[in-house]
């Protein structure tokens, strides 16, 4: 059965690339949100198999979105993968304390990114 992935990123171009990659190469269904709030609304509106979440976003950043997802019982079980351009050691340390399923660093290979997601989430490829 096809997986359903929600992509939350404030950059339109990145949303397009990620969604296109996952649909074309992974064969999954995707939807995207351009802000933290829109992401939260969409996360509640339908069942998701995973959420790809950007960290640096205006108004409500990825950390805040993740916190809100974890507070709500309906969304706390959805695995979250951070999709971020933050690469400093201090950033990495913070990601580890969050309890996210995994981290994918920008830029990523669009042809294999779906495999990275599947590997992190232990999905059969």
């Amino acid at each position: 059965m096809s997986k359903r992935i929600l992509v939350i990123d404030d950059e339109l171009d990145i949303r397009e690339v990620v969604c296109l990659s996952l649909e074309e190469f992974g064969g999954w269904q995707t939807d995207s949100a351009g802000s933290g709030q829109e992401g939260l609304d969409k996360a509640l509106a339908a069942p998701w198999d995973a959420i790809l979440l950007d960290i640096s976003m205006p108004v409500m950043d990825g950390f805040a979105v993740y916190e809100r997802l974890q507070v709500d019982r309906r969304t706390q079980t959805i695995p979250v993968i951070l999709l971020t351009a933050k690469v400093l050691t201090s950033d990495r340390d913070r990601f580890c304390t969050l309890g996210v399923a995994g981290v994918i660093t920008k830029p990523f290979n669009p042809v294999t990114v779906w495999q990275q997601v599947a590997q992190i989430l232990d999905w059969a490829t």
Binding site: E11, I14, V17, L20, E24, A85, K106, P110, V111
Partner: peptide, 15 residues
Amino acid sequence: RTPLTAIRGALGILE
């Protein structure tokens, strides 16, 4: 990294 991600992604898909 942000514009690079978009460039890398777009070119990768094309390729």
